[in-house]
């Protein structure tokens, strides 16, 4: 039983998620899996205002997200989007959520010590390690900003980056 979309995006919830993903994929529920937002009511209000009222929005940390997913039925999972702000958070979530079999890199922008691996997508060493851990678990990792855009399989490039020459 897979969820609709597991997305890594350092901007968390924004136009691409609300319009590009929720709209075109007909999501009914979004879990923003981010402990900082979970602890900050001001940020929660901002993100809640960005999401249409007919979509349920939850703010959770990794254990809370895993608990919610574990309690969902197949139909509910089919309409669920989970967003994490980092690769490490998604790795941690996938360790306790076997229902996530595909992860989408939706947005990882320029940061100090991060290198551009795909156009507009920047990874640092921690990101790469986390994504390789996902691949090692048999999880498919793709690079795709919005549904409809070509999904690039991340595996080959990720494995090539740090392999000995």
């Amino acid at each position: 039983m897979s969820i609709l979309l597991a997305r890594i995006d350092d901007r968390l919830i924004h136009g691409q998620v609300v319009v590009g993903c929720c709209g075109s994929l007909h999501a009914r529920r979004v879990i923003l899996c981010d402990p900082e937002v979970m602890a900050d009511e001001f940020q929660q209000r901002l993100y809640a205002a960005a999401v249409p009222p007919d979509i349920q929005l939850d703010f959770c940390d990794v254990p809370g997200t895993a608990e919610i997913i574990a309690g969902l039925g197949e139909e509910e999972c089919r309409h669920l989007i989970v967003v994490t702000g980092s690769c490490a958070a998604m790795r941690d979530l996938c360790e306790s959520c076997p229902s996530i079999d595909r992860v989408c890199l939706g947005g990882l922008h320029h940061r100090v010590e991060a290198e551009e691996v795909w156009p507009g997508f920047f990874l640092d060493a921690e990101d790469r390690n986390a994504l390789r851990a996902l691949l090692d678990r048999g999880i498919e990792v793709v690079v795709q900003r919005i549904p409809g855009e070509e999904a690039i399989d991340a595996a080959e490039r990720l494995r090539a980056i740090d392999s000995p020459t």
Partner: peptide, 16 residues
């Protein structure tokens, strides 16, 4: 441009 987009959210976080 879009109040609920990344720009609007960043502005609100910055100026809270």
């Amino acid at each position: 441009d879009v109040g609920g987009g990344s720009c609007g959210i960043a502005a609100q976080l910055a100026l809270r």
